[in-house]
Nucleic acid binder design. Structure first.
Lengths: 249, 249
DNA sequence: CAGTGGTCTAGACCACTGA
DNA sequence: CAGTGGTCTAGACCACTGA
């Protein structure tokens, strides 16, 4: 171990911090997991064994194993041991971005047209989704987002006025509802569903589609501290939009 | 701290482990972030300050802050401090599951019909996706998955024979390709795209649809240690399937 | 009972940033 | 320079599981 670190200091460029021990232990275990040395469910070395093997303190080994557990690579059980994780459920990471930022990042121009922005009385469906009384006032906006002047998304959104009383005074040609609501309610929780379907006649017209053209629909409901903030239906022409994701173990 | 823990032991039910200090510090910081006490970019207390405030050692505070950093709630910079994170990119967690497990979990029955399972020579497109030579042998399966005898997914899949030489000998009415491939190649990385579209005539026939019925299409490409394993096109009737996800800060 | 992981302590040395 | 976070040590006490 000591000769190794002396050697690596010579071969590394200055200012390049050496890989810390907990990271090296993680890499070692990841490699052996990847090579199939421990098949799913197999018992892996205990903390004590790794302490001896790497000549480090238990806290360092514990950090390595705890992080592998957070990454879903190992399962740990007090009093039992550490096991190679079953990887039969594949949970992927998917990014749903503010459409303005997304379009700009592709080097394209974004602009939005506002087709509706007003206060309405809540129907039963909307009231239930936003957790308000039927007939209560809610804000309703319909905005079409364009990428390089091509309609990319029709955003039909209801907002709980209690969470964003000034919502209707925002200039949505300059700031997207998503961006504004993130400013108003900094931390929140969202549930969403992605589905295929057909546009409503109005959506078809706004997006320049026929009502028989397939669309990708993202429905999103956002909650802050248990209080529903907003419900959105985001409709995208099938050929012009897809959601990309990566899964890494 | 000592009187607090004695008190909590009395009020808690036996076997209920007390919330450990690092968790209590995380909860405290999360609450204040949620309440807007620190707006995005704001300087948060240093480790030393939290050590004093909570009467714990620095390692405990460090763990709390490190985990908040991993969760994306704070940004930390050596020599500078800890800051409330900018939450303007919303990355959601989305689970793509083995369809067999997914259907069973809903309490329904799953069965698969195999419509094609053979070795083929790779076309240019397939060769490029699987990283093999044009004309090399690849495995090709077309399987329809049913939930309670209703067609739910048409799975059109190419497999690199080097990664799964016995692929064609698997009984896919008993084990899904996804499940088998996870056994063969325990750790892997996947990229996927979710889009809406129309089925091919063959897919329409297999799923009992018209070619004008919209479908939800998941394309997935899986790589193990840099070697492409498999490429799949998963086609779902629009009304029968959606992908759900949650975003939690 | 011996072995496991969960957590904490009270120190330490270091690299880094900004005044 | 004082203050920050990044990391490690060598111990400790505990709850838990299975023989």
């Amino acid at each position: 171990m000591k000769s190794e670190s002396a050697e690596s200091k010579l071969s590394e460029r200055p200012r390049m911090r050496a890989v810390p021990p907990y990271e090296r232990i993680k890499l070692y275990l990841k490699e052996r997991l990847e090579s199939g040395h421990w098949t799913p469910g197999a018992l892996m070395p205990s903390e004590a064994e790794l302490v001896t093997q790497f000549s480090v303190s238990r806290m360092t080994v514990n950090r390595a194993l705890r992080e592998l557990q957070l990454e879903g690579l190992v399962d740990r059980a007090q009093g039992v041991g550490t096991f190679a994780a079953q990887l039969h459920r594949v949970s992927s990471s998917l990014t749903i971005r503010d459409i303005h930022e997304e379009v700009l990042e592709r080097g394209h121009t974004h602009h939005a047209t506002v087709h509706l922005a007003k206060a309405e009385t809540a129907t039963a469906t909307v009231a239930q989704r936003l957790g308000v009384a039927v007939g209560a006032t809610v804000f309703h906006t319909v905005i079409v987002h364009h990428e390089n002047d091509v309609a990319l998304q029709c955003e039909d959104r209801y907002v709980n006025p209690e969470c964003a009383p000034d919502y209707l005074s925002v200039d949505f040609t300059r700031m997207t509802p998503t961006h504004y609501l993130l400013d108003v309610a900094p931390l929140w929780e969202a549930r969403f569903a992605v589905a295929a379907g057909l546009p409503t006649p109005r959506e078809a017209k706004l997006l320049g589609l026929k009502t028989t053209d397939p669309v990708l629909i993202v429905s999103r409901r956002t909650v802050n501290r248990g209080v529903p903030i907003t419900q959105a239906r985001l409709v995208h022409p099938a050929g012009r939009y897809q959601i990309d994701g990566v899964f890494k173990p």
